[in-house]
């Protein structure tokens, strides 16, 4: 699983980590039952604070994408793979947006309007 963080992007680091995990699960690179990397390992590799990683894992737990258990780490749930069926539609949407010259921020705003939290 590839996790990327860009401190200069303006998006909170923990949100970026959570987004990487969500994308990996939706793409099928992360299957239900698999364990996420230990928070300590991820923090060392990305040169960030361990609490930032834990915050991301807690957010994922609150969404129901992982189970957090003491001693077992963060385990991916069945719910995490639900994004897979719409992946193709998302790719088509992004391609169409590129085609029409619609920027990423505009596209995300449009999606937010259609799908309020």
């Amino acid at each position: 699983m590839l996790i990327r963080v860009d401190p200069g992007s303006g998006v909170a680091i923990y949100d970026q980590i959570a987004a990487s995990v969500r994308a990996a699960a939706a793409r099928g690179a992360l299957r239900p039952g698999e364990r996420l990397p230990a928070a300590r390992e991820l923090a060392d590799a990305l040169d960030i604070n361990i609490h930032t990683v834990l915050r991301a894992y807690q957010d994922l737990r609150d969404e129901g994408l992982v189970d957090l258990r003491r001693g077992r780490g963060a385990v991916v749930t069945e719910a995490a793979s639900r994004g897979a069926p719409i992946l193709e539609a998302v790719r088509a949407l992004v391609a169409e947006a590129r085609n029409e010259g619609v920027g990423a921020q505009t596209l995300i705003s449009l999606i937010r309007e259609e799908y309020p939290a």
Binding site: L2, R4, P7, G8, S9, L42, L46
Partner: peptide
């Protein structure tokens, strides 16, 4: 991106 970091596990 410049400053961006990645890890693959």
């Amino acid at each position: 991106a410049p400053g961006e970091r990645g890890v693959w596990i």
